[in-house]
Amino acid sequence: MKEKVIVALSGGVDSSVAAVLAQQAGCEVIGVTLRLKHPDPEFSVAQLCASKNDEAAVESICAKLGIEHHYLELFPEFECKVLRPAAQEYARGRTPNPCCECNYRIKFGKLVEFARSAGAAKVLTGHYAKLSEHGGVYELRRGDDLKKDQSYFLYRLDQAILSMVRFPVGAMDKGKVRRIAAEYGLVTSDKPDSQDACFQVPGESFGETLRRLEKLPRRPGLFRYQGRIVGRHNGVHEFTIGQRKGLNVALGVPAYVAGIDPESGDIRLETEPERLLASRFTVERVSWQSGRAPDLSGELEVQIRYRSRAVPCRVEPDGAGGAAVFPAVPQRAVTPGQAAVFYRGDLLLGGGVIGHAD
């Protein structure tokens, strides 16, 4: 009897090749697509992860491979568990990473739930990450194509989820994935890569889009530089630590956001980039992928945003579910709300949410 597997089909090339590889391996493949589309056209037209083109690509792939397919309607849960908390974080002057929460609370959680109800053994996705098992513990590692590695976004996945998932393209580079898609005549073979943000309204920040979507009030305030008022702004939700563009403040030299006070609405500016450096920062709600805290001695690295490089660090747990992190090299624009993810070499240990930086 063929092993039954679920393949999460997004309409992109990576997930479609995951389906091809599963079929090549002799599996019975069932495609599943999550529908996260906002019911209001004003917002749905700006969604990057739920377009009609994506669904057309999914249906083309399923027809080409001759596989069963299901849509899961999940926007209400997506809004409740991902969009609303993200909007509230922006209102607090923080910059959240909704993808990390969405992967854990919506995408993988619901896919595993569906797989179990369908009697499927595994869930396959097109993520660039690798998974192995040692002594009953599942370990997540960076994908071989480091330019596409997505392990950073998967730090929240726990052992229950990891035991059910596989990443067929994790040991490939993007070029090989596209060649396989082309060999099979898939419509996704030359489709552009998806964007990181789930909404993109031209001329509008992601924080403002979420504020409007969730009907939250603005929190306007003042720009301050060296204690002086140098301008006004329409809301702390539109700014992030290290931001330079869009401030509309004339100081004669480039200015950067160095601090955000959500209570007063004040945004502190600095003109010297070195004042954005932090030699220590805190991390909240730390989760360890093995299910328990690892040995934190020896070589560790921390990555504080998806596009940044991991740097050596020291981690000191605070005994209350958080930790203090001491990077070997001071880090620029450490941003509250972003994910800090810990690695030992290419092995992902866990991560949490950045609290504050010193």
Rank of each mutant, 00 (worst) to 15 (best):
V82Q: 00
K122S: 15
A115G: 12
Y90W: 10
K110Y: 13
A87K: 12
P85C: 07
F114V: 06
L124K: 09
E113D: 13
A91M: 07
Q88P: 04
C102R: 02
G93C: 03
P76T: 11
P85Y: 06
S117Q: 15
F75L: 00
E79N: 08
T95V: 10
E101N: 05
K107W: 07
P98T: 02
E79L: 11
C80K: 15
K110A: 10
P98C: 00
N97W: 00
A121R: 15
E77N: 02
P76S: 07
R116N: 14
R116Y: 03
P96K: 04
Q88G: 06
C102Q: 05
F78C: 00
R105D: 14
A121S: 15
A87G: 10
L83D: 01
Y90M: 05
C99Y: 04
A86P: 08
C80D: 14
K81T: 02
R84A: 08
T95F: 11
E101W: 05
R105L: 13
P85W: 07
A120G: 14
S117V: 14
F75D: 04
V82E: 00
G119H: 06
R116E: 15
E77Q: 12
L124S: 12
E89W: 06
K110W: 08
G119M: 04
E113A: 14
K107S: 02
F114Q: 14
Q88A: 11
A120N: 13
R105G: 06
I106W: 10
C102L: 02
C80E: 14
K110R: 15
L111W: 11
V123E: 09
E113Y: 01
P85L: 03
N103Y: 09
K122Y: 14
T95Q: 05
L83C: 03
G119A: 09
I106Y: 09
G119V: 13
N97V: 02
V123I: 13
R84T: 10
E79T: 02
P76M: 04
N97L: 01
L83Q: 01
A86T: 15
F114N: 04
A91H: 08
F108E: 07
R94T: 08
G109M: 00
Q88Y: 06
F114Y: 14
C100R: 05
Q88N: 11
E77Y: 01
K110N: 14
N97I: 00
F108L: 08
A120H: 11
R116H: 12
Y90D: 06
E89L: 11
S117Y: 02
E113H: 03
V123Y: 12
E101M: 02
T95K: 09
A115Y: 09
N103G: 02
P76C: 05
A118N: 11
L83I: 01
E89C: 11
Y104K: 14
F108T: 08
K122I: 10
K110S: 13
K122T: 13
L83G: 04
P98F: 01
A87W: 10
P98N: 03
G93N: 05
V123W: 11
Y104E: 12
L124N: 09
A120I: 13
V112D: 07
I106G: 08
K110E: 14
S117G: 09
